[in-house]
Design a protein around this nucleic acid. Sequence first.
DNA 1: CTGAAAGCGCTTACAG
DNA 2: CTGAAAGCGCTTACAG
Lengths: 350, 350
Amino acid sequence: MTIRKARLKDIAILSGVSIGTVDRVLHDRGEVAEKTSDKVLKIARELNYTPNLMAQVLKSKRPYNLVSLLPRSTEENTFWVKHPIGMMRAMSELDPFPINLTQINFDLLSETDFVKKTRTVLKLKPDGVLLAPIFQSESIAFCSLLRKVNIPFVFVDGYIQETDFLAYIGENVFQSGKVAGQLTEMITPAGKDLLIINLARNLQNVHHLNNRTKGFLSFFANNNKFGEKISLNISNPASDNIKKELDLVFKNHYNIGSIFVSGSKSYKVADYIKASNISSANLIGYDLLERNVAHLKSGTIRFLIGQRPEEQTYKGVKKLFDFLSSNKIPEKMEYLPIDIVTSENVDYFI
Amino acid sequence: MTIRKARLKDIAILSGVSIGTVDRVLHDRGEVAEKTSDKVLKIARELNYTPNLMAQVLKSKRPYNLVSLLPRSTEENTFWVKHPIGMMRAMSELDPFPINLTQINFDLLSETDFVKKTRTVLKLKPDGVLLAPIFQSESIAFCSLLRKVNIPFVFVDGYIQETDFLAYIGENVFQSGKVAGQLTEMITPAGKDLLIINLARNLQNVHHLNNRTKGFLSFFANNNKFGEKISLNISNPASDNIKKELDLVFKNHYNIGSIFVSGSKSYKVADYIKASNISSANLIGYDLLERNVAHLKSGTIRFLIGQRPEEQTYKGVKKLFDFLSSNKIPEKMEYLPIDIVTSENVDYFI
DNA sequence: CTGAAAGCGCTTACAG
DNA sequence: CTGAAAGCGCTTACAG
């Protein structure tokens, strides 16, 4: 015995009106006597009515137009290659529905380009926007424009509290630093020094990396197990500059047990370590870039922490669609799992 | 400029036939002159025709009936609580489509009950089956019956090579043992002994756990860093029995650095350790059961390895649906990521 | 062998 | 304020 899903027609028959009227009531389009409306609503509730999405979509002509505004992946920064893949996966799952996605990319190192691209986005008059708010103040301005014309937007990679975003999907940055701290604690012999490297060309990113570092250090707040904690900021990520800076550090410190790199470029530090043979320290970094993974597999990097870039955009697109099509308000802050990746489990993460 | 998706009507007009004929050609329902058929096919290809799923589904009356056959979660074994959740998630995502899911559960400790339930499943004449093949020979018999009546089935939790399954979604068991081995290697001081515990009431499971243990040991194959590797099989998981067995072990071994528990009941070992204060060894176990997680957070367990039970069934349902609705042949072996979980990242996994 | 028509459940103009 | 009808793209029975 299966219960059939209630249709407009069922409600119409039971309330003694036409399906046109039922539809008007259910969509609150007015022009209905209150008495009629009440009766229809009551019966709809009783029958537990939910619309048949198939029929709804089939009928609707206008597709949803989504736009993504993300940094362009470059030779220098391959972190952003995964994001389009997640969006494509979402799009192909949503294939039966009428959606379009326009991908706009900006130069990760140029505020000017970002601002220019936000104008492109606005001109497209999208129904929803997926956005990585790399540049703080420029993003705030853009978001308030979106707000004004009532375009919902979701953040990935990071979020800006003071904007009216629909949802954020991504890492809890502080906590991911803490995880790195815990792993470091587990694998570093007592008494050793810890080296903390912030490796970021564009200053915009510093806030993000600082938060990770704070999380990392917070793990050692009540812990005297280790020696010195050496902090190193490298803003020029050229290999020869990294070599220069690290040579200096290792000349003065002989007791470094572990190295924490707060950004995604730990492979650069690994390159150095491997080439100079200077240290047997454990290296812990972020993100499953190809070059990081190579060092993970060869043993130069002990742990990588993954933040699921692909899943961020996948879920972002889905949330926008659910919101637009069914008015579903998503959970605002969706922190994705913080993946701990080693040479032995990495294959199942890529 | 948007290109509109081609419809039957478009093909019909261009080939100078009716849409009924086009449909007959495209579905290979015969009764069409070869000449007509060729022309229609050619034009369909040119227009890159794919059917509108919405209209297709809207039209179709008969729903797909899926059945799951999984162990019942019990007080004694809460590992199976997550599986229904994953199925419900898949069902709610597929809500617009006409699917039914009937969940059948069997007693994890009774082959007889399993066999009885397989008959229930067959009587339901499902369109697809999702199955945890706990009992080897009984599962093989059941699968060959499914094969005979042409019902596709997917495995979760484990798989049986010699059956004709549509897909397996789950852990690479050997590799997950190897990951545990690597973690153990990282956090255990050189020279220490390792204790390996197989804790399984029903012997059926032993194959599974043995594989994990093999993976674990394989990591130390060319490695003399540690002392003795002590193996302990406990088939009666009652607390007092565990105490008895472990008391014996610890009476004879003073140097145990880490304990590996191959099944999901590491909390029982943790209970013992905590109560008896006997060991400061690192404990590594499997699965995010509530009681395991409690010990992880309090520090008694260092690492838990997760195998994403919820995602297993979620993907299983989706694959069955995709196969039935669009004839999509899924990747046969889908190994899920092996999650490394600590007290610091566990919150994002539950 | 082929076409015309009804209908899946919904939405949207239009007529009254 | 309300109903009847057309149409979204597909499938299916029926007529010829």
